[in-house]
Each structure stands twice: as structure tokens, then as C-alpha cells.
């Protein structure tokens, strides 16, 4: 007797991966860096991440409901928590709770859902959120607790929820801040870096480890990180060779601030980045170059967020311009 079958389009094999898996792997790859950061800065790092996640999920659910989209697949895709964690990693661990709230409103509501939600956002939501709070609340975001004297939990809670921590009194300048201030006062790079124990290289290494795992898992592609490296070298190396006293070395740039995190986790955001191989290379290079330029000539100590946002705006153009030659077409 003939038998009937349900139809379905080719390919019939199970899908190799899912959005949830991709986002989940990126979150996992953040672990070494988050662990090291927590060891240095205390549980505030985790508290900020948890706060941002909570706000992100809440806002995501609200926006999905408002836009009439199904909640379950989109809440479960882990893209909102990833945005939140990347955003939180840029905050000082004792930042007040409303920083995360404001940042997530900017990221989830404005940068993501008002552009059409997952897959449609033009700009990296985490960086939109961070850029907004950085510009709006410079004072709250500038001070980091000293590395060797972690804040006691009580003071942390008081600072995050009560606004009681005297930032200026306890805060220690980050190496990038120090460099900027000291150079501004006419000192040389060597003098400015006198107190820098080079410890942040370890954090950069931790991010790099996670990034390498993502490369091995084929979650990210090599083009963006290599592009960032090239971009940093292209700008920082000539400046440094021109005047080693006035300009930090490429190594310093690569190992400080958010550059390693940005190269592997932020600039590799697929949605807002370029999608063609050569576009990605150039995208990364733009991020690297912009970061060094902002650090050297701009008004802010770090420039990863600005670099990423600027290149986000260029991504569609890059993709159009650098479209690969299809197989069998003339060169």
C-alpha cells in the first residue's frame, strides 16, 4: 500500500546551530575574563552584570509584548543577556544601579527594538548604551576601585543602591586615565607608566583566550580581530616610532582598556557589523584605528565604543563595496 509523507524543503539535515547556541557560546567565552575581572575588582563585576541582565530581559519582554512578537523564542535567544553583560563589563563595579537601567533602555529599547529587534539593529546595542551613559554620566563612570583593596560588600551595596560611596576619595585612575592626564601635564609616556604594573595584559589575555575558543568553534571569524590588530598597529606604530616619549606603544594600546574585549566580543557582533569577509577586515581595522585615535587625540580615555559605533554606520557601505566576486565571474 502506498504511503504518504510530510513534505519539507531541502536541506533535510538538522540545522548545524541556533541563535541561542551562538549567543550562549559567546557568553561562555566571556567567562575567563569575567572571572579574572571579578578576582581583581570584587563581586561588583557580577552584580553589575546581573543588574544589567535583569533590566535587559525585562525591557526585552516589554518591547516584544508592545510590538506583538512572540516572547519565548526571542527571550530565549540569549541576545539580550549578551548585550547586558558586554555593557556591564564596561562599567565600574560600584556604578549606581540606575546606570544599568538607563544603559539598557538605550540599548534594548532604542538601539534594538526601535530598529526592528533582533537582526535589524544598525548599531551595536551594548555600545549605544555604554556611549550614552559615558557621555551623560561621565563622573559616575570615571572612577574605578583600586585593584588591591577591593570594596567591602556592604560598601558596594551601599554604593550601587544607596549612592553612598565617595567615588572621588576611593577611586583610582585607570592606566589609560593616568596616561592621558600625565601626558596632558607635559610628562613623558615612561613617567606616566611608572606606576603601571602591566597587570591589565593578563585581562587582555583572558579575553583573547575566550576569543580564540570562539574562533575554534566557528562562532566568530578571524577577520575582525585581525583587522583590529592591524588597525591599532597602523595608527599606533607610526606615532610611537615618531615620538616614543609622547605616544604609547602599540603593545600598551593592545593590552589596556577594552581593546581585547572589543576585538573579540564587541566588534564581532554580527548584526551591526559587516558581513563580507573583506568588509569585516576593514571593519575591524576601522575599530582599531579609531580606538587609538580617540585615545591619543580625543576627549575620552578609551575609544572602543566610538570606534564600533562609527564602523557600524559604515558597515552596509563596506558590504556593498567589498562584495566578493562570485565563483565563475571574471576578476
Amino acid at each position: 500500500m502506498a504511503r504518504e509523507f510530510r513534505l519539507g524543503g531541502a536541506p533535510h539535515l538538522p540545522a548545524a546551530t541556533s541563535v541561542r547556541t551562538v549567543m550562549g557560546k559567546v557568553l561562555l567565552a566571556l567567562l575567563p575574563g569575567v572571572a579574572l575581572s571579578t578576582a581583581w575588582h570584587g563581586p561588583g563585576v557580577l552584580l553589575q552584570a546581573a543588574l544589567a541582565c535583569a533590566f535587559a530581559l525585562l525591557l526585552e519582554a516589554a518591547m516584544l509584548r508592545l510590538r506583538g512578537r512572540p516572547l519565548r523564542p526571542f527571550l530565549g535567544d540569549l541576545s539580550a543577556p549578551l548585550t547586558a553583560v558586554l555593557f556591564a563589563l564596561c562599567l565600574p563595579p560600584w556604578a549606581p544601579w540606575w546606570i544599568a537601567a538607563v544603559g539598557m533602555v538605550a540599548a534594548i529599547v532604542f538601539a534594538k527594538h526601535l530598529y526592528g529587534g533582533l537582526g535589524y539593529n544598525l548599531f551595536n546595542p551594548a555600545m549605544v548604551g555604554y556611549a550614552l551613559v559615558l557621555v551623560a554620566f561621565t563622573r559616575e563612570l570615571s572612577g574605578w576601585p583600586p585593584l588591591d583593596a577591593p570594596i567591602p560588600p556592604g560598601a558596594l551595596l551601599d554604593g550601587v543602591f544607596g549612592g553612598g560611596v565617595p567615588w572621588d576619595a576611593m577611586a583610582q585612575a585607570t592606566p589609560l586615565d593616568t596616561l592621558r592626564d600625565q601626558l596632558g601635564q607635559g610628562r613623558t609616556v615612561a613617567e606616566a607608566q611608572a606606576g603601571d604594573d602591566g597587570r591589565s595584559a593578563w585581562l587582555a589575555l583572558a579575553w583573547t583566550l575566550g576569543g580564540l575558543w570562539l574562533l575554534q568553534q566557528r562562532v566568530i571569524h578571524w577577520h575582525v580581530p585581525v583587522g583590529v590588530l592591524a588597525g591599532v598597529l597602523a595608527v599606533a606604530l607610526p606615532l610611537w616610532l615618531y615620538d616614543t616619549g609622547r605616544h604609547a606603544s602599540p603593545w600598551f594600546h593592545l593590552t589596556h582598556g577594552a581593546l581585547a574585549l572589543g576585538a573579540f566580543f564587541i566588534a564581532t557582533d554580527p548584526v551591526s557589523g559587516a558581513a563580507t569577509p573583506r568588509g569585516r577586515l576593514l571593519f575591524g581595522a576601522g575599530v582599531g584605528a579609531m580606538t587609538v585615535l580617540v585615545r591619543t587625540f580625543g576627549a575620552y580615555p578609551d575609544g572602543v565604543a566610538f570606534g564600533v559605533l562609527l564602523m557600524n554606520a559604515c558597515a552596509p557601505l563596506l558590504d556593498r563595496w567589498l562584495k566578493p566576486r562570485p565563483f565563475g565571474h571574471a576578476r
Binding site: H12, A15, A16, V22, D77, V271, A275, T276, G328
Partner: peptide, 23 residues
């Protein structure tokens, strides 16, 4: 078989670009 997992919007991850034999 491919399950009937919901189709989500494209996140432009570029895996399709990487595997496409026609570039």
C-alpha cells in the same frame, strides 16, 4: 530532520558566506 524550530530573523553571522561554494 530539521526540526520545526521557529525561524528567527537573520543575525548576519556570515556562516552562510563562509560555506557558500559559489562565493
Amino acid at each position: 530532520l530539521r526540526d520545526d524550530a521557529p525561524e528567527l530573523p537573520c543575525i548576519r553571522c556570515g556562516e552562510c558566506v563562509r560555506v557558500c561554494p559559489a562565493r
